[in-house]
Nucleic acid binder design. Structure first.
Length: 497
RNA sequence: GGCGGGGUAGCCAAGUGGUAAGGCAGGGCUCUGCAAAAGCCUCAUCCGUCGGUUCGAUUCCGACCCUCGCCUCCA
């Protein structure tokens, strides 16, 4: 079965076939952040979605080149640079670094290329010159250069490939009135914005005069540079369909005369607590806000990946708490498998059980069906339950445990949870001596500090002496310190909450 | 006004022309000295409302109600 994806260009689910004649290399471009502030949870949904697409392609055997731009020059950025009396580089550098930290915390693979707009001014100018030469762009009285939709259409090109546009029926909107630029037509958009006093030191020389790039042109210039004039996949949030992506198509196809992108993928927005996220409603979260509440990037990633990417998703704090429990179930099962396998998790060379083969087959089918991630989780949790049943009945062989672990590694290549593959700390109840090789904790890879270990030993002594009052008091104390104890038939388990 | 998504259990969320995956929460049970953020089991006669097509619809068609998004800052 082949990978199928919903292509906005055709408004249908299509089989994915790379442009590469060898059907191996895939070029993928995702509209990245505008680094004027910390990215919010809505932005993250899109980037986690892009990561899922990339991982799915890699899982399917493709050699992916993932490009994500950094928009580091733009109206809001310039405004804040001016207000904070700082430099463009200093201002954007801070938010770019924060963005990359967050991306990592969410378990996203780092894009292979992260081109900055300000470092591609030459490419941008060259592209604009091409459009001017082809007669689809013009310089206005204010010194700015605009793209002419009318001229573009006059060349037989199609403006409005991603959605039905009826420019006459569309409301001009209040925003157009506030647009002081001198365009020939309201639909036209800026390729190069002439320098104005408020821009301060943010400007570059160009054949059209001093100024800076328009918003859309950077993506055309950088994606073409990195991936060629025609490439496989371009993704972004659904709000970018128009005007951003539509304009990208117009600029790129207007300049090259070739089809720009084969598959356009758009991720839906999210609601927070059932409402559109807004600062005034108090439901506006950055990743940092959620980490400060004690949640982990992994939990946020899981929650963002519970719903299909083309459906509006309702992100809630309750849901995030639930994500914690759900992940624990998977982690718990993996830990038990590790105890069974009782080996370092390196290369596992055992035959794969049919149970695992079936699960992996269902997993793959769901994933390839336009990334039906909800169904993927269904497969994962049913598989976990089956394993738990076998573990509880003690009918699982060592090799089966290893097979399951190898299967999980394969699945996690797509899910990106990177759960700990170390066993829980387990102590022999009688001797109080930890068996060698099993010394990490379930959640996170944190070693228990001496104080916690000492309390654990004291509790073991108390239990040996049947002093259950003291034993329970220590258990409560440990819990208050963030460590939970489980007495299992095989020994005592210590877990970080 | 134009265009496009949605309404499935307490919450989140898949799915199908033949009678509803999964997760969280809840309930029951098991293990346990007692516990457990441990495991198992259980949990929608029903899929916004009303009509229609059909042997049969939550799934197809029509109308209506509600809701969300885009329409030149936007993930």
């Amino acid at each position: 079965m082949a990978l199928k994806l919903f292509n906005t260009l055709t408004r249908s689910v299509q089989e994915f076939t790379p442009l590469d004649p060898q059907k191996k290399k895939v070029g993928m471009y995702c509209c990245g952040p505008t680094v004027y502030d910390f990215a919010h949870i809505g932005n993250w949904r899109t980037f986690v979605f892009a990561d899922l697409v990339r991982r799915t392609l890699e899982f399917s055997g493709y050699d992916v080149t993932h490009v994500m731009n950094i928009t580091d020059v733009e109206d809001k950025i310039i405004k804040r640079v001016r207000e904070q009396k700082t430099t463009l580089r200093e201002f954007t550098g801070k938010f770019e670094a924060a963005f990359l930290d967050d991306l990592k915390a969410l378990g996203c693979r780092e894009p292979h290329q992260k081109p900055r707009a300000t470092e591609h001014i030459a490419e941008i100018i060259a592209l604009i010159e091409k459009l001017v030469a082809r007669g689809v762009a013009y310089k206005a009285a204010d010194g700015s250069v605009y793209f002419s939709i009318e001229k573009y259409r006059g060349c037989g090109c199609c403006y409005g490939q991603l959605l039905k546009l009826n420019l006459d029926e569309m409301r001009a909107g209040e925003r157009v009135a506030s647009d002081e630029y001198e365009k020939e037509s309201v639909a036209d958009f800026a390729l190069w914005k002439a320098r104005v006093p408020d821009d301060g030191e943010v400007f570059w020389p160009s054949p059209f005069g001093e100024g800076r790039p328009g918003w859309h042109i950077e993506c055309s210039a950088m994606s073409i540079k990195a991936l060629g004039e025609t490439f496989d996949l371009h993704l972004g949030g659904e709000d970018l369909k128009f005007p951003h992506h539509e304009d990208e198509i117009a600029q790129s196809e207007g300049a090259t005369g070739k089809p720009f992108v084969k598959y356009w993928l758009h991720g839906a927005h999210l609601l927070v607590e059932g409402k559109k996220m807004s600062k005034s409603l108090g439901n506006f979260f950055t990743l940092r806000d959620l980490l400060a509440k004690g949640f982990t990037g992994r939990e946020v990633r899981y929650l963002l990946l519970t719903a299909h990417y083309r459906e509006t998703f309702n992100f809630t704090l309750d849901g995030l708490a639930g994500a914690k429990s759900a992940l624990s179930r998977i982690q718990e099962c993996l830990s038990k498998l590790l105890e069974f396998w009782d080996n370092e998790i390196g290369e596992i060379n055992v035959p794969i059980d049919s149970r695992d083969e079936i699960a992996l087959k269902k997993f793959t089918e769901a994933l390839q069906d336009d990334l039906n991630i909800s169904q993927v989780w269904g497969v994962v949790f049913e598989w976990i339950r089956e394993l738990n049943r076998s573990l509880a009945q003690e009918i699982l062989s060592k090799n089966s445990a290893a097979s399951a672990l190898a299967t999980w590694k394969r699945m996690d290549g797509v899910l990106g949870l990177s759960l700990s593959l170390k066993s829980a700390l387990r102590m022999n109840e009688v001797t109080g001596v930890a068996p060698s090789g099993i010394l990490a904790e379930v959640r996170g890879d944190e070693e228990a500090p001496p104080e916690i270990r000492s309390l654990l030993m004291q509790r073991i002594e108390a239990r040996k002496a049947k002093d259950f009052k003291r034993s329970d008091a220590i258990r409560d104390e440990l819990k208050a310190k963030g460590w939970v104890i489980e007495d299992t038939p095989k020994g005592i388990k210590l877990k970080k909450i």
